[in-house]
Nucleic acid binder design. Structure first.
Length: 283
DNA sequence: TGCCCCCTGCAG
DNA sequence: CTGCAGGGGGCA
């Protein structure tokens, strides 16, 4: 489900709710959803939260980190004890928790609870120490954070060049090229750049890489601004849906008119994934 | 680089 | 019923 903007939205709505609280008990409802020994995190205070690519991290006082990857259908939902009395938005919108999709439950010392839900069971929570954070191959090979200093068009171009014969939209999904871009924002970035998603990296000009860089940054920033994309599962840590898809140029808009020129948006398959674009605005 | 796979559920 | 879904690992 979540790409960079969705995970960042979760992080922002979660942090203030759990910082300084102590994890009293972790209940693992689905074994494959939690890697590590829960008791190493129990009794530990939450120091901070962070996001890396599409992952959410919760740093604990004993130097361990709870690292979440939500994959396609993961949710991280906080339910505060006080708000629960008299109706909590989470409960109102999502029904009683835990539910059928709840895989891990984190209980805090003040009676509040954090649920890790994941319908498809692709996601995971890993209890990592410093060493494992610095040796995990996926983590150490991630590309640059697109919303941080240092991400410029030349870097994007140079990283994309390892996929010269790959369609640009497919190449953008490689997390070692740029971290955090997923299927929704890859289509959006190509639209903003005016580049046909089928174009091969090797044929793009510098002028197009400049526009592509702009597309990546703008689409992700817009995603955060609108609280993420709630096509099916996504909600923030307090149970609210995001409205980015109402503002998306092409994703999910096949057969609807292009917001810029009115031409019908087209849906094709690239690298096995649904891909949306405007054949008039993108070439 | 291009499948197939990990799962569950929903739309067509 | 088949196909499809915000991801990514493993295999040739």
């Amino acid at each position: 489900m979540p790409e960079l903007p969705e995970v960042e939205t979760i992080r922002r709505t979660l942090e203030g709710n759990i910082i300084g609280k102590t994890i009293t008990k972790i209940e693992v409802l689905n074994l494959k959803s939690f890697h590590g020994e829960p008791f190493h995190a129990e009794g530990q205070k939450v120091l901070k939260t962070f996001r890396k690519a599409k992952m959410l991290g919760i740093s604990l006082a004993n130097d361990l980190t709870l690292l979440f990857h939500l994959k396609m259908s993961g949710q991280v939902i906080y339910q505060g004890e006080k708000k629960f009395v008299g109706g909590h938005p989470t409960t109102d919108m999502l029904g009683q928790m835990p539910n059928k999709s709840t895989r891990v439950v984190f209980n805090f010392n003040d009676g509040s609870v954090l649920f890790f839900n994941d319908q498809r069971k692709f996601g995971w929570v890993k209890l990592m120490n410093k060493e494992s954070l610095n040796s995990d191959r996926f983590l150490t090979n991630l590309g640059p954070e697109p919303l941080e200093e240092g991400f410029n068009w030349q870097l994007l171009r140079d990283n994309l060049y390892k996929h010269k014969k790959t369609p640009v939209k497919v190449a953008l999904l490689d997390q070692t090229v740029v971290a955090g871009v997923g299927n929704i924002y890859a289509s959006e970035a190509c639209f903003i750049a005016g580049v046909d998603p089928k174009r091969l990296i090797g044929e793009l000009t510098d002028r197009e890489f400049i526009k592509l860089h702009k597309g990546v940054v703008e689409s992700l920033e817009s995603g955060i601004k609108y609280g993420g994309s709630s096509k099916t599962h996504f909600v923030d840590a307090e149970g609210r849906k995001g409205v980015f898809l109402d503002f998306a140029y092409v994703y999910g808009r096949d057969k609807s008119p292009c917001k810029k020129c009115g031409t019908g948006v087209i849906k094709i398959k690239l690298g096995g994934r649904g891909t949306y674009y405007c054949s008039s605005c993108q070439s």
